[in-house]
Design a protein around this nucleic acid. Sequence first.
DNA 1: AAGTAAATTTAGGCATGCCGAAAAAATGGA
DNA 2: TCCATTTTTTCGGCATGCCTAAATTTACTT
Lengths: 244, 244
Amino acid sequence: MSPMSRNSPALSIKSASVQDYVKVIYTSTEWQDQRVTPSQLAARLGVANSSVTGMVRKLVDLGLAVHQPYQPVELTGEGKALALAMVRRHRLIETFLVQELGYAWDEVHDEAELLEHTVSDTFVDRLSAKLRHPTRDPHGDPIPAADGTVRMPAAHQLGELDPGHTGHIIRISDANPELLRFLSTEEIGLDDRVEVIGHRPFGGSLVVRIGSADRPREIDLGQEATAALWVASDGPHENCLLGS
Amino acid sequence: MSPMSRNSPALSIKSASVQDYVKVIYTSTEWQDQRVTPSQLAARLGVANSSVTGMVRKLVDLGLAVHQPYQPVELTGEGKALALAMVRRHRLIETFLVQELGYAWDEVHDEAELLEHTVSDTFVDRLSAKLRHPTRDPHGDPIPAADGTVRMPAAHQLGELDPGHTGHIIRISDANPELLRFLSTEEIGLDDRVEVIGHRPFGGSLVVRIGSADRPREIDLGQEATAALWVASDGPHENCLLGS
DNA sequence: AAGTAAATTTAGGCATGCCGAAAAAATGGA
DNA sequence: TCCATTTTTTCGGCATGCCTAAATTTACTT
Ligand SMILES: [Mn+2]
Ligand SMILES: [Mn+2]
Ligand SMILES: [Mn+2]
Ligand SMILES: [Mn+2]
């Protein structure tokens, strides 16, 4: 009912669709630096390829993305700033849902996916303060600060590690809620200690030892699980990427 | 991204616009039983009259409203149920913003106006529980229960009362944020005791005594203020309306 | 009863964002 | 190099919900 701008100029004009596209472009290259193609965008957004073509043109017109025909899509500085603002909203809301409203970690994504477009900058600021300015969400994804600063922990997918490797789970992809529920029932969670034991033969599942020293368990994990679990290695600290 | 129904059938299909129209039709007759006309709807929704014509046809097609050409609009049972669900959402969210995020009572309306369409039934349920199932919002408007039950307090506009009348302010219309800010600076709030002293001559402002016995103040209030303040009379309890 | 003003509806149009089908371009293997 | 497959784009169309301008109906005055 009120036509006034509830949000910063960078956010206020953009539609929810624009916000989602930009956010997905950003998150697609957050943990691995493969540029994202239109068909990947279409898959992640649940729209047809032709819809992506049209919206990418719009993003370019808005100065949020750069794109050459038949090439991957990239964000401009402005686009990245918008993406970071959206990611911040999404992850703060997920954190709120878990910490304040008792949601399970597999229930928060869909709710946040809608709320992120609706809350005001004021809401986000006050929510962040109430939650004591958390720096990662329930799945271990980093929450950008209000000024767009992000600290990306150095981490590798569990499936990429060699036998003998030890570390801690510092991120679990929230792309698949079913996987999150599976991990819950297996009592696998953020910050758990993990050691790679070895592979079952012929490309089979990965055997890992999980849990603290007093109650370690050996568990077989399939390809999808080991790709979703990101591990920070023990030992000397690797350097961290500081995003703008 | 998820196409599943996050909400009850009564809510899930309806667009945010449909939800707003139905809610405004309901709230227009909440404190006074004048049926609402299309032009009143247009004014409250901030759209053109012709837009109302089109949407009212849609509401009728959806079975949410009944309407004869050139007549006021009324809700069906189904429409009222949807309206009550939306009013519940709106007022629970307003209460949350004030109690949990430290919003002032003049800041909550616009935020709630958008969030009400975005939160899930689950969110509403858990929010209500966290807030200890409040029965009225920061402005004194009743919050319908999850089953659609509402308890409307018996009250009259302050401007309608005769000199000598005493009571308590049990509702302050949140239609005008500026008025809410004015009342804040005058330290007039919900549940304040009030006594009508008299009218200034020639249709002037109303003189009232406001506040607790230890610190009563006499204040002049204009027409707009006295129309926004709803007073429950002292003395024998009047009967309350129980809505479905 | 007629005329005027207000409210309401109709008609035509626009913006957004989606779709499927078809065309065009890129890719990779033989 | 050429062909087949995949990816991307183009094209036409649809649904929603809004607008303005014009026509219609109603309400009010005289
Ligand atoms: Mn989203
Ligand atoms: Mn997450
Ligand atoms: Mn609304
Ligand atoms: Mn209110």
